[in-house]
Design a protein around this nucleic acid. Structure first.
Length: 99
DNA sequence: CCTGGGGCAGCCG
DNA sequence: ACGGCTGCCCCAG
């Protein structure tokens, strides 16, 4: 597992319940501003399920984005944490976690 | 609203 | 080691 990957996982895991982060922000925090795509790819292959809450990562326009286990599950998890989703989007102004 | 092109770590042959 | 392909994307047009 690379430095990059562990860094990303680490960052995702510190996002508190009820908050979300975006792929872009995450890439920034990981020190690779433009590697968002590669980063998303890393999230997809990881043991996301129980270990890392990668469902707290949404797209920078507020849309949910993809999820290895299906975005149905992703939405459920988010809602369960008290995040309201309207029009298939989350209100970043309210739920975005700033590093 | 949709579209295309950019960008980059990982994985595989 | 080397090149090509692939994605839980982003943004300008």
């Amino acid at each position: 597992m690379s430095e990059f990957q562990t860094r990303v996982l680490e960052l995702v895991s510190i996002v508190p319940r009820g908050k979300v982060t975006t792929y872009k922000e995450l890439a920034w925090a990981a020190g690779r501003p433009r590697a968002y795509r590669a980063m998303a790819n890393a999230l997809a292959k990881n043991p996301c399920p129980i270990k890392i809450p990668c469902h707290r990562v949404v797209r920078s326009d507020g849309k949910i984005g993809g999820y290895k286990l299906g975005m149905r599950q992703k939405v459920k998890l988010l809602v369960a944490e008290g995040i309201e989703i309207k029009g298939g989007k989350v209100d970043l102004a309210r739920y975005l976690f700033r590093y």
